[in-house]
Computed example of a mutant assay.
Amino acid sequence: MIKMKYLMLQLTAVLVLAGCGNAQNNNRLEAGEDATAAAETSEAPPKETETKTILFFGNSLTAGYGLEPDQAFPALIQQRIDSLDLPYKVINAGVSGETTAGGKARIDWLLKQPVDIFVLELGANDGLRGISTEETYNNLKAIIEKVRSKNPEVEILLAGMQIPPSMGQKYTQQFREVYTRLAEEEQVVLIPFLLEGVAGDRDLNQGDGIHPTEEGHKILAENVWTVLEPVLQEEAAS
């Protein structure tokens, strides 16, 4: 009888120990699963940030006439963007001698690619040729409408331009108002005067007195960046 009780006590002890072992094994399995899940989460590759496009569409000022491509203000904007590690690539679509009419005819081809931010810099050649300010206004408006039609969410910046008073005070005033009028009516972001701080300064312009030097383009880049940076910050926050 005593021997039977002893055997039963041993059996009970074995079962208790087995139960503890199973519980420990289960705990280890659960802990292992949690650790594996955590490792998989931490090792999961980060999602790639989509690179957006900034298209600079203009004339010889955008093209960087007389300079190396990396000295023109759009390239300097790209350098600033890269230094801040922002997900934007700049495309320089400047063509020397371009008028607003030429730009209107050319824009459709460029809109085959998606555009997130569009910087419109045209009109100076219209002014130098004395083209009707109403024609300049209509051409610029048509370009803006085409860009929006193709890219409804696009942000548009308009580079304001002024011309010397040699064309007459009335024409000069009307020309300046083309840009302020468009900015208000079309709800685009206005760069008040692209050549601010450069126009008329011999040290900042090439021999023709029209096209900025390398140092002049640094100032143009700053004029653009002052207006562009808040747009980029707003895009990043949205």
Rank of each mutant, 00 (worst) to 15 (best):
I210E: 05
V154H: 05
I81F: 01
H211T: 08
M167T: 14
Y137L: 15
V178C: 04
T12V: 13
D201T: 11
S149Y: 08
R28I: 02
L111P: 04
P165G: 09
M4E: 10
E135F: 03
P46W: 08
A72L: 03
Q233P: 03
K3S: 10
T41N: 07
E43G: 04
Y137Q: 12
E186T: 11
T100L: 00
Q113K: 13
G209H: 08
L15R: 02
M1R: 09
G207M: 12
R202C: 00
F57S: 08
R176H: 07
E98R: 08
R181M: 05
V95P: 03
A221G: 14
L122M: 11
Q162I: 08
P69S: 12
T12I: 15
G207V: 13
E215N: 12
P46C: 08
E40M: 10
S83M: 08
F175D: 01
L11E: 00
E33N: 13
T133S: 10
G32L: 08
C20M: 13
V90S: 06
I107Q: 01
G207A: 15
Y6D: 13
A101K: 14
T51D: 02
I2M: 06
K141M: 04
N138G: 03
V115P: 03
C20F: 12
E48H: 06
T36N: 05
Q233R: 14
D82P: 01
G130Q: 05
E153I: 01
G102T: 12
E68S: 12
G207C: 02
I163L: 11
K112D: 13
T180D: 07
L86K: 08
A39N: 09
K170P: 01
L120K: 09
T133W: 05
E43R: 11
R106K: 12
M167I: 12
I156V: 15
I156W: 10
T62C: 02
E229F: 12
L7F: 11
L110Q: 10
S42A: 15
R176S: 13
T53K: 15
P46E: 13
N125Y: 11
E48Y: 00
A63C: 00
N125S: 13
Q10E: 07
L204Y: 09
I144T: 11
I54C: 10
E214K: 14
V178R: 05
K170D: 14
G200T: 13
S149E: 14
S83H: 07
V231S: 05
I54E: 07
L157C: 10
S132V: 06
E186N: 08
Q169V: 01
V227Q: 13
Q206M: 09
N138Y: 05
N125G: 12
K5R: 13
Q78S: 10
Y137D: 04
A93F: 04
L128E: 00
I77L: 06
I117N: 04
E134P: 00
A44D: 03
D203K: 14
A105E: 14
P46Y: 12
I2N: 05
G21M: 10
K150C: 03
F193S: 06
I54F: 07
V188W: 09
R106H: 10
F73Q: 00
N223K: 05
C20R: 00
E155P: 01
F56V: 05
S238L: 07
G209N: 02
L228V: 07
A75W: 02
A105Q: 08
E196L: 09
V178Y: 00
N92K: 09
G103N: 04
G97D: 10
N151P: 07
S149M: 09
